[in-house]
Design a protein around this nucleic acid. Structure first.
Lengths: 168, 168
DNA sequence: TTGAATTTTCAAAATATTTTGAAAATTAAT
DNA sequence: ATTAATTTTCAAAATATTTTGAAAATTCAA
């Protein structure tokens, strides 16, 4: 397979993959393209290579920047802005984990803590089931939270070594 | 807070949470409601409590069943079908992990392996960056795959104990 | 069998999300 | 300051997803 074809295939699959994870197709495609591009690209490069409008590129690029996955690059003597993606996949993963934890897991745990404090007869089976389910989810969430925290702080080698040892 | 209000809050939040993870709002809500319901519910119960149509309930329930998160229950002497959700949150989590791994991670790893075998000059920086990026993603994916495999096979106590020990 | 109860299907409608593109805003060189 | 290049915004259009509801299929008791 030729590079051009492989890139196309990767970008398209990464877009489809992303959309199963609540990330919009185009944002995932832009990210994919930047990850396999050794040099920074302009908005026009992205428009052309992905066949999408300027506004679309601009919005999604800004989103990727707030996710901490893409950086603006100013090339000396160049008027236009360039964009580049973090290439270290471990950093990409920890960045995504960090953000999703902050945006989704933490608020959910906060809510669960409130819902646990429901008032009602603990003998009532509906109350009992509710409290148990909420409690169970919260417990699992806290474990995940703790695990992700440590992963994010650790560096790659530590993680790989630890995982390898732990899981044979 | 009263049970009814808390249930409503949980169901609604769980729906919103799910939609950040590629799960449709209604499916997540049905799942949430069944998780906090001690007794099995009928399609009519779900229609009424969530204010959704019969067809909607039916489709999403079937989907939840193929995910292995909900079971049909036949109550003796009853004509209608009842539905119940797995209440053990650890089993819920491993079931979801197992399915998503099968549906998404495994196919992605297969694709990455093919894309790695690209032909072209390894000196070319575009080729080099492509191969490195794909290789990095594949490596991380394989690690995740291995880790999830073990988690899914392990039981809750083992997991909690292991995590606690590993992550202090 | 028959037929009433129940479940399933799926085309059409409703809703939600994404994309476009051109106007407005910004930037920086002259 | 002026202006041309570039970026940003956002209402409208296009597209995608979800939901409805009624008809068809299925189930099961009589």
């Amino acid at each position: 397979m030729k590079l051009t074809e492989a890139k196309l295939q990767f970008v398209s699959s990464w877009g489809a993959f992303g959309s199963h994870w609540g990330i919009n197709r185009t944002m995932a495609q832009i990210h994919a393209l930047l990850m396999v591009s050794p040099d920074p690209l302009t908005q026009d490069d992205l428009m052309e290579q992905l066949n999408i409008s300027r506004g679309n590129v601009n919005m999604n690029i800004r989103d990727l920047i707030t996710w901490g996955l893409v950086d603006r690059v100013i090339l000396p003597g160049e008027r236009r802005e360039y964009f580049t993606a973090e290439k270290d996949i471990w950093k990409v993963a920890t960045q995504i984990i960090k953000e999703r934890k902050k945006r989704e897991l933490d608020p959910m745990l906060k809510l669960l803590s409130q819902l646990e404090k429901i008032d009602g007869d603990k003998k009532d089976k509906d109350v009992k089931q509710f409290v148990e389910t909420i409690g169970g989810i919260k417990k699992l969430g806290l474990q995940a939270d703790k695990m992700l925290d440590v992963m994010v702080k650790a560096d790659e080698n530590w993680f790989l070594a630890g995982i390898m040892k732990m899981f044979k």
